[in-house]
Design a protein around this nucleic acid. Structure first.
Length: 347
DNA sequence: AAGGCGGGGCC
DNA sequence: GGCCCAGCCTT
């Protein structure tokens, strides 16, 4: 009856979210990809814009990749957008544009793992798959007092099995939404609302006052420091932009010409670097200002970013071969990482 | 099994 | 400042 209590809680407490008012697997897919490691409040606006621009999977499949990335700009984890685009193409090619309706076929699509395949199978096709995400892990580990780590292979089996057992014969699309929403709103990571929780008497963590002990801690990631010096090289109406490679972070996104150093540099030292001198050998340059030191934090890197403004003659801008020359009015056509976007917006 | 990959909200 | 989030892919 535990699942009934969670579903009952859900009916009274659920949020009205746009992707809950459809059974279109395409829309549900888009929402699930956006929601990976991303909170609901962040996703909503992106979801509307994306669906509005690409109402069907064919619209997405035939789109230009830069436009897809552009709609993703600021949402992070850009591989999600590239995989989404690739998967849309393969659905059009292999399934005539009709989203596959079995768990196994859905799981084959690029960017879709066990969680997302289960979610789509349950929400769009009402198939009995338990979608186990961070919320579900937290709820189950607290209720049952599971000490297994949630990301170990054995832990995944344990939680998947517990979730399916708990679902029992409840409607999959309702049960999954309910337990996920319960984790997001009631059984939160910090300061869970145990005082108003209908599951108190059945919850191992509450009974033993160990809410903070579950789920078990995952290993910490090592954070590395990197130092980025972005050169904003501009004339009256144009500036330079280059595209990042396909290794490293922010693959294929556009940014200002970059000098990366192993540690902090002073402006004087920066000007002395060979790279710098060779680029500007024949140009008259003028460092107009030197602003905005900031630290941009990624999940595994701290980027110490400094923007250096350099005004040059329009004729000199044309000397930079292999670097894009962009009109200040057309920045919207280039998907950029957050710090670049923010800097341009602040000018 | 571990590392890479964004950005924002919250305490 | 650290933790967490509707994870997945590559090595």
């Amino acid at each position: 009856m535990l699942n009934r209590e969670i579903i009952n809680w859900y009916e009274f407490n659920k949020r009205d979210l746009p992707w809950r008012n459809t059974t279109d697997p395409y829309k549900i897919w888009i929402s699930e990809i956006m929601l990976q490691q991303t909170q609901v409040v962040t996703v909503v606006d992106y979801y509307y814009r994306f669906i509005n621009r690409f109402p069907t999977i064919k619209d997405l499949a035939f789109a230009d990749e830069n436009e897809v990335l552009n709609l993703w700009q600021g949402l992070g984890y850009y591989s999600r957008a590239r995989n989404l685009h690739q998967a849309a193409k393969s659905v059009v090619a292999d399934y005539n544009g009709v989203f596959p309706d079995s768990f196994e076929e859905i799981l084959k699509l690029k960017g879709i793992g066990v969680y997302t395949a289960s979610a789509i199978a349950a929400f769009a096709f009402h198939l009995p798959h338990a979608a186990v995400d961070g919320n579900v892990n937290r709820v189950l580990s607290r209720i049952y007092g599971v000490s297994e780590s949630t990301n170990s292979p054995n832990g995944k089996r344990v939680f998947q099995s517990l979730a399916e057992e708990l679902m029992s014969d409840a409607p999959p699309h309702i049960y999954n939404q309910a337990i996920i929403e319960f984790g997001a709103l009631q059984c939160t990571p910090k300061n869970p609302s145990c005082d108003s929780c209908p599951l108190q008497v059945q919850c191992f963590a509450y009974i033993n006052k160990q809410q903070d002990a579950f789920p078990v801690k995952k290993k910490k990631v090592k954070i590395t420091d990197r130092y980025f010096y972005y050169l904003f090289i501009y004339s009256d109406d144009q500036f330079l932009l280059q595209q990042r490679g396909d290794r490293d972070i922010w693959r294929k996104l556009f940014e200002f010409p970059l000098i990366e150093a192993n540690n902090k540099l002073e402006l004087v030292d920066l000007i002395k670097t060979k790279e710098w001198l060779s680029v500007f050998k024949d140009s008259k340059l003028e460092i107009t200002n030197h602003i905005s030191r900031k630290v941009h934090k990624l999940s595994h890197q701290n980027l110490h970013i400094e923007f250096v403004h350099i005004k040059v003659e329009t004729s000199d801008l044309n000397k930079f071969e292999s670097i894009l020359l962009v009109d200040k009015e057309s920045v919207a056509g280039y998907p950029m990482p957050r710090p670049i976007e923010m800097h341009l917006a602040s000018l």
